[in-house]
Structure formats: structure tokens, C-alpha cells
Design a protein around this nucleic acid. Structure first.
Lengths: 340, 340
DNA sequence: CGGAGAGCCGAAAACGTTTTCAGAAACGTA
DNA sequence: TACGTTTCTGAAAACGTTTTCGGCTCTCCG
């Protein structure tokens, strides 16, 4: 029971009274302060348990000037990026120590300001800002009373700490895998060229190809949109221009689904004749594909955990700054295989 | 600026001093209490603005016994169900009034208890519990100090208030649409029969068919799994047993994708020869399908908003109980059309 | 036996608000 | 002028903790 029979919540006074000590000693006993006799401490602890006392964090926060809460300011709740990050962050803070306030700004700067203010009013101890897309976003500013960590979308202020996924490395990883599978004529179909991430992934891919003295099949990166439809359209064009392609690196799993769709339609066997690799490891798309899709996982949960750790460190007085790039990893399924 | 030049946060005392009044009057002035002269109030408000004062909610909560926070206890953050609900809830509470603490129990009862305790310790004013699947879940119990609303997954205690989507109505809606399109040989492929929702949707479908003196094509509901692969497999079997089917109602968008895939493979035109309708309106699947998928939207954001409203009402002392079923709606795209 | 020191404990202040209540100021009336 | 009302203001208590510091009790040593 959390309530006394009176219906009033249990306070430290109740505990102290039951243990026959003062509130002060009760507090010290429960907080492990050394200056209390072992026997007294035991009595207090017992009393606390009997009443199942749990301290009012508001009162604690008021006096310690730490609320034990952090704010998570995201710009795409619906999106799949913030969620894993959020989960990682949530479990990196032991939930008994720190709870997280969630706010979705929906990409609106006004709303973001508003939420920011609400969070500060609640005296959060820190902030994690998660962007909707992996490009640079405006900093919240330098004069905030609490530390901030930017995740996924880096801040435009290099003095902020930003954590991002390694898109260049991801592109390299994908192509490396295809090369190891014995593929030589590798094409790259990707999304909106307005996304920095698209260029980064392409760069990683090309770098790795260059090491083998290879060029992209089709000569160029196929930029377009982040959609299945574009994946289909680009694949059709690609097959026409370059019928002997033996691997396609898609810039997202959505695009990869479109690619697979057309290959299937054309009765081109995957992976035996053409290998396909995606990006994001969006499970619903990748695992259900036919065949299941090899793809690059962004390790977003890890990103969230790291963000939480960095934030915790900053809250302890060890701030950091700059851009930290976190590794991605390959998830192999059946859409790629060594050439036979 | 939120901080005085001293680096200390601005308090009501600072405002009072600047306005030349006592803290008491400053408080009353800012809270719109009537017993303060208009001119004084103006002075206080001005001072507050100049210092950009914002009250410490911890202190407020301590005294008013209301923290202005609610807990959202979910069991599937990764899942797509809790997210829209969460967004709806977040915007139903004006974010300046009430902030939401997010906790993910990951379907683990221990973790749930743990989070619950943490939330109560934080003195949340209410709780929303979001389940991972639309079946009954255990109640948190009746002796909680704050009101609770269950969303998506109803509580097993009828004295709790639970908000659920209308699965029966959804099934009816889907079939009704197909009938209006002139279809008569309608099959239903759905997921895991362990889900109550699967049976509810099927019942709605059958009820509507019965009104036209129709039976399900293939005679029975095709239960299986919530996956594309099952959608593909079931469709193949269906086409064999029942080649003249003219509409397929899929129990989820994933299944519908599988259905479309096989129809496409068999060169059966959609929607001209067979109409297909999904369930969930999971955008990434439905909108990208070929052709884009007509489907039933669960109105989850609305569900979240309603949950927040009911919770707010309960917090104001107007509790409710029982099971409230919220309507779903049809989203028509190109996979269904009148028979030509 | 006296005093120093260590070990414990509790009174009280503090955190930043809201709310109650007493009293001051202004005003009208006799 | 005296007095009753009304209007406004401010002192103080309260919320539930933590922390400081003075003081009590004991032990030990000279």
C-alpha cells in the first residue's frame, strides 16, 4: 500500500515516528549517510518498508536542485528513427533514477521552443534532441541551463555534442559485403539527393569500389526518392541500361523493396544472379521481403544509449562537444550470397 | 534569459522585489486571483516578463499536490500502435499544462511494476496504459492513488475504464465497402487466431455478408499469421480452391501486401478483377503498395486524444468505467473500385 | 576524576511556491 | 469626526525533503 489508512500518502515523518527517530535521522538513515548507528538505520529501514514509503521526488528535487528527469525533444515521433533511440535512452538511465519526458515538436520550430520552455520549467536535468532526418539542424543555443545531446541529426554548432550514425561507413560496409560475395558490377539506387546522408552513403560505396578499381554499374548513383515506387522505376531503367548488373545497393529498405519487386517481375533470381542490399534494417520491410533482405542496421538503440550516457556524464560535470560518429552493422539475410 | 546574471534561476522573490510587492501578491497577481489591484497586477506581470520568470513546477506541485504530469506506460514502444496513441495523448494535454512521462515495460510484468512505482514516486496525476496487442490485459489494480485509463488493450477489470478500437465495426466496414463495389465472392485472410481482434474483425465481416445472404468465399476465414508470407501462402491456396473470388479482405496491411504480391504474380488485375482491402492503415505498407491499398484506419491518434480527455476528466473528479469502443474509418485508395 | 574526542542524534533552516488570515488603506456614511 | 465597509496587501504557515550544526552521551586517557 502506498497510502496510510487515512488516505494520505506516506511521508518521511510517518517513517520517523514509527521508527522512533527524527525526520533528520530517518532521512540520513535511508540515504546511507555514515553518521547514523547501524541499529538505528535498521529500524528506520524496517519502518520504511512496513509503510512502503517512497520519497516524494518533487520535494527532493526542490532541495537538491535536481529533478531526476530529462527531456527528450523529438521531431518525428511517427518516424521510426526516434523510437529506438528513445528506447535506448530510456534503458540507459536506470528508470528508477531518471525518468524521461517526451515531447514531439513535429518539425515546427515554434512548438519546439514551447516544449523547451515547458521542459525547463519542469527543471529537467538534461535534454536529448532527436532530429527527423540525419542532416544538420539548428542548435538550441549555448545559454541553456542544462546540458544537451543531439542524436541522429547533428547540431550546426560544433560546440554542441552531436551523435550520428556512420553513413559513409554504412555505404562502405554494404559494398564491401557485395564485393566479398564476388560481385563486380554493383549499382547504387538511393533517395532524395537533398539528404546529406544519401551522399555520404554513396561516398562510402564509391570509396570501397575504388579500392578494387571498380566503378558503379550504370556509371552514376541513381538519386530519386525514398520510396518503393522510385526503387521500381530506377531498377527498370538500370536493367535496360546495364543488363549485366550483378548487385544493387539500395539507399533504404523501402527502395530495396521496390528493387526486389521489379527483379521478381523480370524473373531475375535473387541473390543468385543479382544480389540486393538495403539500408536501415526496418524490420517490417526487410524481414518480410522476398527473399528477406540483407541490410545495414543503424544501431539506433545503441545511439540512444550512448546519448544517455554522454548526457549523464555532462550532468555529472563532464561535458563533451563535437561530432561523434557511431558504427553501423551489417545484417545478412537471404538477398545476398556468394556468386556460385 | 532564464537566468539572472548571477547564474541563479529567477524566482518569484526576484519578480516581487522588482515589482515592489511581496511574494504573496506576486503569486496572486500572476495566478489571476481577483483580490489584487489591476495596476499592481500589471506591474508584477511586467516584472515577470522582464525577468522571463517561469515558476518552478516542483515547488508548485509540492504545495498543490498536483505535479502536472501523467505517466504513459506502454508495452510496445517499437510497435506502431502505441506511438500514434502517445502522440494523440501528448497533444490533448496542452503541453504547457501537463507533460507526459514515457515508460516502456516491454511486456514484462516485473518491469511494469517497477515503472509504476517510479511514476507514483514522481507523483504523476494519472496514468495511461497502452497494450501491445488489442486483447485484454491484467488490471493494475483498484487501489492506485491516481486515475488510470487503458487504451488499445482493455483491462480485465470492468471497473477500470478501457478504450478500444472497434474491430467488429472495422470488419463490417471493410466488407460493406467491398459489397458497395459490387463484389459478391469475398474472402477473408487474417492473422493469428490467438488474437481476439482477428475474431472480432471476422465477425464484423460475416455479419455484413449475412445481411446480403452471402457467405465467405472459400467457406471459412483463413487464419494464420500476421505476415506477408502468410498472406502469400493463403492467397495461393485460396486461388486454387476458389478461382472466381472477386475480393479479398486482409486482416492486416502486412497480409494484404502478401495478397497483392501473389495476385500480381498471377497476373490477376487489381482492383478490376479482384479488389483487396487491408487493415491498420500502416502507411509505409499501405501507401507504397502496388496499387496503393484501401484499408481500415484505427484512428489511434483519436484514441490517444480521447484517452487523455477521459483521464483529465477523472483527474478533475469525474471518473468513468467500462469499455468504450471508438470508431474506425475507411481509407480508400486504388486497390478497390466498383466492378466494371 | 576531569577533559578531550568520537559517535550519534535532532532542531531548524532551506528549497520556491500557494494560501490563509490579519491588518492597513481608502472610502462612504452618519 | 468617528465609524463601518470595502479593497488591497503582506506575514507566515505549509508542502516533504535534505543538510548544517550544535549538543548530548559515551569512551578513553592522563
Amino acid at each position: 500500500m502506498i497510502f496510510l489508512s487515512s488516505g494520505r500518502p506516506v511521508t518521511l515523518r510517518d517513517v520517523a515516528r514509527l521508527a522512533g527517530v527524527s525526520v533528520a535521522t530517518a532521512s540520513k538513515a535511508l540515504n546511507g549517510q555514515p553518521q547514523v548507528k547501524a541499529e538505528t538505520r535498521a529500524r528506520v529501514v524496517l519502518a520504511a518498508e512496513q509503510l512502503s514509503f517512497s520519497p516524494n521526488t518533487l520535494a527532493q528535487g526542490l532541495i537538491t536542485q535536481r529533478s531526476g528527469t530529462v527531456g527528450l525533444l523529438t521531431s518525428d515521433l511517427e518516424g521510426r528513427f526516434s523510437i529506438p533511440i528513445l528506447m535506448g535512452a530510456e534503458d540507459a538511465f536506470g528508470s528508477d533514477q531518471t525518468s524521461v519526458f517526451l515531447c514531439d515538436a513535429r518539425g515546427d520550430a515554434i512548438r519546439e521552443k514551447h516544449h523547451l520552455r515547458a521542459l525547463l520549467t519542469r527543471r529537467v536535468d538534461g535534454l536529448i534532441v532527436v532530429g527527423a532526418r540525419p542532416d544538420t539542424r539548428p542548435s538550441l543555443g549555448r545559454d541553456l541551463p542544462v546540458p544537451v545531446v543531439y542524436a541522429y541529426a547533428p547540431s550546426d554548432d560544433p560546440d554542441d555534442l552531436s551523435l550520428v550514425t556512420d553513413n559513409v561507413g554504412g555505404g562502405r560496409l554494404a559494398v564491401d559485403h557485395l564485393i566479398r560475395c564476388g560481385r563486380r558490377r554493383i549499382a547504387h539506387i538511393t533517395g532524395d539527393p537533398g539528404y546529406g546522408a544519401a551522399h555520404d552513403r554513396a561516398r562510402g560505396a564509391r570509396d570501397r569500389l575504388a579500392e578494387e578499381n571498380l566503378e558503379l554499374a550504370g556509371g552514376e548513383v541513381w538519386f530519386g526518392m525514398w520510396s518503393e515506387a522510385w526503387g521500381r522505376g530506377a531498377t527498370r531503367m538500370l536493367l535496360e541500361r546495364c543488363p549485366d548488373v550483378d548487385a544493387i545497393f539500395a539507399g533504404s529498405d523501402e527502395i530495396a523493396r521496390g528493387v526486389l519487386d521489379v527483379l521478381h517481375e523480370e524473373r531475375i533470381p535473387v541473390p543468385s544472379r543479382v544480389a540486393v542490399i538495403g539500408f536501415d534494417n526496418w524490420n517490417i520491410l526487410a524481414a518480410n521481403a522476398r527473399p528477406p533482405l540483407t541490410t545495414v542496421d543503424l544501431n539506433l538503440e545503441q545511439l540512444g544509449r550512448t546519448a544517455a550516457q554522454r548526457l549523464a556524464a555532462a550532468m555529472e560535470g563532464h561535458p563533451a562537444s563535437g561530432l561523434e560518429t557511431l558504427p553501423v552493422r551489417l545484417v545478412t539475410r537471404e538477398s545476398t550470397a556468394p556468386i556460385s
